[in-house]
Write a protein that binds this DNA or RNA. Structure first.
Lengths: 171, 171
DNA sequence: CTTTGTGCAAAGCGTTTGCACTATT
DNA sequence: AATAGTGCAAACGCTTTGCACAAAG
């Protein structure tokens, strides 16, 4: 990579080697003497076709119904772990279960989490990163990352709750 | 940060009814027609004797060794749940296990989490709350709370890692 | 042909639950 | 006496593992 110019205002895209998640995963596998299998390939293809949060069960179900048929539960778990190691996915825990989302090629962000419908809304804030780094600095703490989840009720769900003729949760 | 409004600087202490965690828990139990038992009393006494993060196993072990003998696992779990309902403890999840800390009478805060020694360092930032509220506002999201965990390596652990003659993790 | 990956079944781990017995009210 | 709580053992839900067979290099 040749950054010969004087100004530092370069776009990431021009610097990065253009590589798809699949290519990157292949590099990762090769670097560890692991193998590209049909299952791994199909999972990567499927996961990076959409940008959504999902858990292991979602993925198992979706693999079953779409692209080429079932992948076993252990293989799904193992592959998700590798995709995290490879830096392609990030894992977080919500309500005690692991939830995954794209990491590679996707800007870092935080989440609003609706406790009613379980949805996640992404947002980014440079200020939070600045505060994070300042706080850590003050404690001589070496930051590797952070996770901020703002919990509450999303617009849609609070609207639904306000509707007069909604289904009542009475005994 | 725009705390531009007129002077809202009142102290919480002067407003609250002076009551200990135990008193508050008793009120909570009465309001729900639940009973104050020996086990519950001993757990509350023990938990509020120190300000530390702990999980169910910690508590079970500590109850065993100290104050009055063993409390069963199910009772510990049940009581922790009630203390959370009562607003005395907050629960968070770290490495897939539930961790508790004081809530009642303790200012809200966020955490630096050392991935090496598992310790939590507390800090408070009004700015984060302001950002949280601004982000939520923009999405018409009704906030009930947030959780920010900054992960990394604490000062002590990075010092340890830098020491030349440290115990090596070799095979 | 060697080595890694897969799928099955079974185990693991933290947490919760059904139930007979005990304690609180 | 009536009712809620305890402790045991067993179940739970998500995730991981041991192992024989299949597939990739």
């Amino acid at each position: 990579m040749s950054l010969t110019s004087t100004d530092h205002d370069f776009s990431l895209e021009s610097v990065e080697v253009a590589s798809t998640p699949m290519q990157r995963f292949e590099e990762y596998l090769q670097s560890r003497a692991k193998r590209m299998t049909q299952q791994r390939r199909r999972i990567v293809e499927h996961v990076f076709q959409q940008h959504a949060h999902f858990d292991a069960d979602d993925l198992i179900d979706q693999m079953q119904k779409t692209a080429g048929g079932k992948v076993s539960r252990p293989t799904v778990y193992r592959t998700l772990g590798e995709l995290v190691d490879a830096g392609l996915l990030v894992k977080m825990t919500l309500r005690g279960r692991a939830v995954y989302e794209h990491d590679y090629g996707y800007p870092s962000h935080d989440h609003l989490y609706c406790m009613k419908c379980d949805s996640l809304i992404e947002f980014h804030s440079k200020e939070i990163e600045a505060i994070r780094d300042a706080v850590a600095e003050a404690q001589n703490f070496r930051v590797t990352g952070h996770r901020l989840i703002i919990s509450g009720i999303c617009e849609e769900c609070s609207r639904a709750a306000r509707r007069p003729n909604r289904r009542l949760d009475l005994i």
